[in-house]
Design a protein around this nucleic acid. Structure first.
Lengths: 148, 148
DNA sequence: CACCAGAACTTGAATCAGTCAAGAGAAGGG
DNA sequence: CCCTTCTCTTGACTGATTCAAGTTCTGGTG
């Protein structure tokens, strides 16, 4: 149950990153705090409900700026439009249901080496290890048994 | 330096999975054995060079059948079209350059628990852990220093 | 407090990757 | 050799995202 952050909190977040404070940006940040793994369409819808009218392009621009400044994390599971979430610095991963697309946060395996280790980095400067777990959620698994 | 598999080898591969042997399928399999991390366009181009003319839709269909039957692995790094490679059963991961898009195979971290462990599976039946390492390749890193 | 420059937003068209659908053609079991 | 079924071709179409040009607004400055 995420709770939506306050307008002032969102504005401060923007200021602390030297970004201009605008109504659409504040609204997008607030919605992101309330909707887990939101896609562009969902964010646009929610933002419009709050502000009356915002162009889709603006949503794309805002999300690009926010993720470019490390305020927001973007991830793109195969077969789904891009998803966004507030960057909380916890480097968690994602678990996606192959059947219904439900997405859940998963802790980075605890007590193990940080996920940034590749066995051999081939000279690359690796800055991120993206992990997506694919499977079937309990609900879909139950439905599959019921309807074979 | 991958070496292209023989026509007969490709045909046998198809037969062993009860799939019909057709010229386009054999050609796609052969090209996949020669081109690492090939995308649809690259495969189509190479296949046409060999066979004269094959529809793009056929390439999509063939790749769908091949990956549906476990002959081919598909992966979709954010911001790039889907990539395909022969399934060799080694469950390796991928390292992608953020600048030029170069992709390299990376061993699954050796000696560690298999990559299928999430810290908490939330009741999901997890069947795959997809890992993509993001970074900058040596060439692009050097170029970035030269042209600041 | 009004002004200005540059950043942000709107509008509308365009692109790219991939999918859908209907019909013509070929693989391979009988 | 023939028939059924799967495969391939053709062409239209969709969804997600990007590009480009013009208008509006934010926030620092006089």
């Amino acid at each position: 149950m995420s709770t939506m952050i306050e307008t002032e909190t969102a504005a401060d977040l923007l200021r602390s990153h030297s970004l201009r404070v605008t109504a659409p940006r504040v609204a997008v940040l607030r919605e992101l705090s309330a909707i887990p793994h939101a896609d562009v369409d969902t964010i646009a819808r929610a933002t419009r409900e709050r502000l009356g009218s915002v162009s889709t392009q603006a949503i794309y621009d805002i999300l690009a700026v926010l993720s470019g400044n490390g305020l927001v994390r973007k991830f793109e599971p195969a077969g789904h439009p891009a998803r966004f979430e507030l960057e909380l610095g916890d480097n968690h991963h994602h678990l996606v249901c192959r059947t219904c697309g439900t997405m859940i946060d998963v802790e980075c395996a605890p007590g193990k080496a940080p996920c940034l280790d590749a066995a051999d980095d081939h000279g690359f400067a690796i800055d991120e290890a993206e992990v997506i777990y694919w499977g079937v959620c309990p609900t879909c698994a139950a439905a599959a048994v019921a309807t074979p």
